[in-house]
Each structure stands twice: as structure tokens, then as C-alpha cells.
Design a protein around this nucleic acid. Sequence first.
DNA 1: AAAGAAAAGTGCGTGCACGCAAGTTTGCGT
DNA 2: ACGCAAACTTGCGTGCACGCACTTTTCTTT
Lengths: 217, 217
Amino acid sequence: MTAQPTGLREQKKQATRAALREAALRLAMTHGPENVRVDDIAEAAGVSPRTYNNYFSSREQAIVAAVTAEREARVAAAIAARPTGVGLADAVADAIVEQYTDPGEHHRDALLMITTHPALRAAFVDTAGTVEHPLADAIAHRLGDTDPHTARVLAASVAAAIRIALHQWVQPSTASPTTSGLVVPAGSLPDLLRAALAPLAPALDAAEERARQRSPQ
Amino acid sequence: MTAQPTGLREQKKQATRAALREAALRLAMTHGPENVRVDDIAEAAGVSPRTYNNYFSSREQAIVAAVTAEREARVAAAIAARPTGVGLADAVADAIVEQYTDPGEHHRDALLMITTHPALRAAFVDTAGTVEHPLADAIAHRLGDTDPHTARVLAASVAAAIRIALHQWVQPSTASPTTSGLVVPAGSLPDLLRAALAPLAPALDAAEERARQRSPQ
DNA sequence: AAAGAAAAGTGCGTGCACGCAAGTTTGCGT
DNA sequence: ACGCAAACTTGCGTGCACGCACTTTTCTTT
């Protein structure tokens, strides 16, 4: 699915993209994000500044992309990989948690830099929106490819939930005890993700149920 | 709620904001959006270009704001106004449809301009995100103000659904018949909104049910 | 293999977003 | 009424995003 033009052209494009985001991260780590201009990144990656802008529409995006690279596609693949027996809500939650838990390994210090710089934080949180389209495809396929509209709404909602979880995660923990007394002190990302996705479970399962009724067996 | 600093200061601020967005719309309508610079808008509104940027962070935002002004607050108020008897999902859907149906009246030609210019279209669709915070407050209040996290996720999901509906609405109608044969040919905005919100109804109602169980009566 | 189409890279120019450090207005306490 | 502190406005400078036209590279067709 989603046919790949697997040519030399696409290869080079991905190579350029990777070179750009890695150069961006490396320079940001060494000199600090404020002291890196796009010209520097472009030069380090061996392309013109204009080409840089053909790949990333903001400086922060390039830096953050080095940490979140390809995550979107992996999420979609992970959902597709879940056995059809498990419910849609669980399949989505498990796949997302799986893909969002690990990746900080090699980039632990990079994540620290991101969380300490507001502009990078915003860009990082915004990466949640990137999963929307792959996610919509994955959900639609799982719902039997009838009514892609529902899948799209659900995917957008899931993306929004992810965004909220990321937002809470990178927040400098303003653990303000509300009147209810119940405070979630910015826990681990997996917990935040599951907590954010939980309210959507009824919608996901209901959609699955409707799809099942429509095409029985 | 949401105390207003009701001073002369706030008054002037709102006046400036209104002057800016109306100037932006007027100039865009007469000269075309491409031929309007922020300096022109600022001059027409009687402020400096720098002040303009204190109110709007993009040129398109100012133009679009003239059409979508205050809609967010009105949505929140409309939800609060629904009787507590009606279910949360219906309350939200009704309030949103109510606030998104009418407003094009005085701005019919403005909307035509927006839909015909890609940059304005994007800005217009992005206004959906603005309702998120007021919406979260309204939903949280309706859920009894316990666990604001759920309300936030639901609000973000609703905002995402609105965004999708707006996107479909302003789309130049690529009515591609899918394999299922069932095609929604970019209908009226109320219909699109209800269709986009429908998949979220189970989640909204489930949250309401949980809130009811938690604090019975 | 050669030519033509398609797509990616590049240089340039323009308008813009935004940090910063003033200057100006509003609000509040006494 | 006075004056101080906070909020809003403004000018300036810097780096940036992006449209456009053009060159270079890759893919396709014959």
C-alpha cells in the first residue's frame, strides 16, 4: 500500500532530508538552538539554504525531526501489525505507546534540550499532527475501508490526544492541585498517552462495532 | 467565570483588535489578499506595523478573524446554555452547529474570497483550533469539573472534528466516488459538522456517564 | 541511445515575524 | 491629586519563509 516510487530519486531525497535534520540536531546540540541559522544547517548538509526550506518550513521543525523521524509511518505499521482479534481502541493505544516509549534512547540529551527551549517544545508537540494521515489510513483499513470519514475524525482525535499527552510531558510540571485534589504530576509518557487516549476508546470501539454490523463476518 | 478586567485598557485593546481585522478584511476584499501588506493594514487601522504583530501572528489570521471573530466564546456559552437534561454529545453538536451555521450571512462574499485563496483557506480551517480551550472549560464544567484531563482530550477531539468539517467544506469538492459508492459531495456545513462530530458521540456520552457514576446526583 | 518530460536543487528578491529596548498610556494606592 | 508600576505601543534590526524563474538531475518513451 501507499506505493513507493522506489527510484534513485526518492533515495536521494530521503538522504538529503536525513542529512538536514541530523545537521540541524548536531549544530543545535553543540552551539545551542538560538545560535544556529538555517544557512549553517544547509551548509553542514551540503545543500543551498533554499533547498533547506523545501524540506522544512521552520528551523525548529528540522531540529525536532531528528528525534521524531519516521515515527508516523511506524505507528501506522504497528497498528496494521496488531492481530484483528484485539479491539481497535487497544490496538491503537498499544501501537502508539509502543512507538512513543523507546525512541528517546539515543536522543536523551536532545530531548532535554528540546524541553528546555520553548520554541523547540512547541515544534515537538506539533509533531503529533504528523501521524494524522497515516493513522487515518490504518484505522480506515481496520474498519474495512467503508466510510473513510469516520476514520479520519478518529485519527485526528487520536492525534489531538497524543498532542495533549506530549504537551503535559514536556511541561515544566506546574503541579497545581485542583479542587478535586487529584493531580497527575506529569508522569511517564506511556502513562500520559494511555490516560489521554482512554476517553477516546468508546468512540473507537463504537466505530468498530458499526463497521462489524455493516459487513458482517 | 473567566473574570474580565473590564477596564478602559481592555476596551481599547478590543477596539484595536476589531479595527485591525476589519481593516484587513476590507483591504483584502478591495485589492485582493495578495496585494495587501501588513503595513497597509496597520496604517488603515491607525497603529504601527509592529503593533499589528502583537495582535495577529500572520497576515491571513487577521483577514480570517474578521469572519470568525468571537465564535469560540459563543460556542462555549452555547454549550453552557443547553439544559442539563440533554446528553453531552447532543449539547456539544447542537451548540457548535448553531454557532457555525449563521455567521456567513454578512460575510458571504468574504467567505468566497477565503475559499478561493489557499493561504486563506488554511488559516480559516486553523481557526477550529481556537475553540479548544473554551470548549474544554465548558465540557469540564458539564462533567462536574472532575478530571479536567478527559474534558481537554474531548475538547481537542471536537476541535479536530470541526477542523475536518471545515476542511471538507472549503474544499473545491473533489467528489471522488470511493469503492463503497457512498459519497458525501461536500454538503452544507451543518451536515458536515454533524457527520464529523457523530463518531465522537460515544466518547462524549461515555465520559458523561462516568462523571454521573462518580458523583451521583 | 537520444530526446523530451518531470522533478529536484538553486539564486534572488520581497515581505514578514519577532526579540529587544526604548517611549507612552492606564490603573491603583496613598 | 500625585506618582509609581504595570501594561500597551513603537522603531529597529535580524533572520526567515516562500514565490518565481532558471539550471541540473533523474525517469520515461521511442
